[in-house]
């Protein structure tokens, strides 16, 4: 494997999907490696869920192909693909107990009753729900249903697990817990996760790689750090995190050369107006976000810059105050 690089688990080739006149996915090509946590990130309507549904086999591509472990599965129905899906609203069978839900995939594949019961119990225990096998889905909390959906998929030992905004319905605290749990399950089992979300924080914290979607196309693929620090388009820079975008005249004045630049707020320092460095500006707003605060500055001569500073910092500023703003020269990253 070494000199040929990692094994490709899923390969998408010029994948496209039209619904009537609407192009949902427009020629997506992407290799997803075995054992990686890949996130499809994008706003709603950007095509990321449609791509996931085409990998699962719920949608037939209008063009292009899907390969699983080197095999073209474009025309193979969902029931015969070795992938499993965790749905956004879990899609648990309401008339079956938790245990029956988890056993389902084994039952339809005619696994003997005692073996499937044992494996289903193991899967339930791995998500810490061993005691709740007899309950109906309607008797569980959202977080518990989420974990049943996960166990129901994992019990089939899929090569690839597809997750469609699986944490979208949970509250913040639980979501953060589940993020860690999902990540550790993925690591432990060495599974390939393809994870759809519109939450850039979730994408940054969990993924090995992120594919950023916009209008049916992939804008950029890379590690969270690459995506955040070296976005290759203004869309990616703006969608992933908060940023300052400079172009044209503003770029010439603030960065010193023409081009389009992204500058993350955490690189911007707010200094006293008497400081010798930086650009003169006026504070136009302060947004308190807990650990950090965003300071909105109007640069003299036009242009807005957002600075982010620790809320504990002693240099508290107020609206209308004259300040200087400065950043390291290499913090403004050119978008090519």
């Amino acid at each position: 494997m070494s000199e040929h690089g990692p094994t490709i688990a899923v390969a998408l080739r010029d994948l496209g999907k039209r619904f009537g006149d609407v192009v949902a996915v427009d020629s997506v090509t992407l290799d997803i490696y075995e054992g990686e946590f890949l996130t499809l990130l994008g706003p709603s309507g950007s095509g990321k869920t449609t791509v996931l549904r085409m990998i699962a086999g719920f949608e037939r591509p209008s063009s292009g192909s899907v390969e699983l472990n080197g095999e073209d599965v474009t025309n193979i129905p969902a029931s015969r693909r070795n992938v499993n899906t965790v749905f956004q609203d879990y899609a648990l069978f309401p008339h079956m107990s938790v245990l029956d839900n988890v056993e389902y995939g084994l039952k339809v594949k005619k696994v003997p009753a005692d073996e499937r019961k044992r494996r289903a119990m193991e899967a339930l225990e791995s998500v810490r729900l061993g005691a709740l096998g007899g309950r109906l889905p309607s008797q569980l909390s959202g977080g518990q249903r989420q974990r049943v959906a996960l166990a129901r998929a994992l019990v089939n030992r899929p090569k690839v697990l597809l997750l469609d905004e699986p944490l979208g319905a949970l509250d913040l605290k639980l979501r953060e817990e589940m993020q860690l749990e999902l990540k550790s399950i993925q690591k432990e089992l060495g599974l390939t996760f393809i994870y759809v979300t519109h939450d850039q924080g979730e994408a940054l914290s969990m993924s090995d790689r992120i594919a950023v979607f916009n209008a049916g196309r992939i804008e950029q693929v890379g590690s969270p750090r690459e995506i955040y620090e070296h976005p290759t388009s203004t869309f990616v820079a703006g969608f992933v995190g908060v940023t300052n975008l400079f172009s044209g005249d503003l770029a010439a004045r603030l960065v010193g050369r023409p081009g389009t630049f992204t500058l993350r707020p955490e690189h911007v320092e707010v200094l006293a107006s008497s400081d010798t460095r930086g650009h003169d500006a006026t504070v136009s707003g302060v947004q308190y976000l807990g650990p950090v605060s965003h300071v909105f500055c109007e640069v003299d001569g036009g242009g807005k810059v957002i600075a982010s500073s620790a809320s504990t910092s002693s240099t508290a500023v107020s609206i209308g105050q004259r300040v200087k703003i400065a950043w390291p020269a290499d913090a403004a990253v050119e978008i090519t």
């Binding site: 086999g57 969902a78 029931s79 499993n84 749905f87 899609a91 389902y104 339809v108 594949k109």
Partner: peptide
Amino acid sequence: APNLREASADLGA
């Protein structure tokens, strides 16, 4: 819910 049928197919049914 339409995705119950999808979930069933997804699990191999």
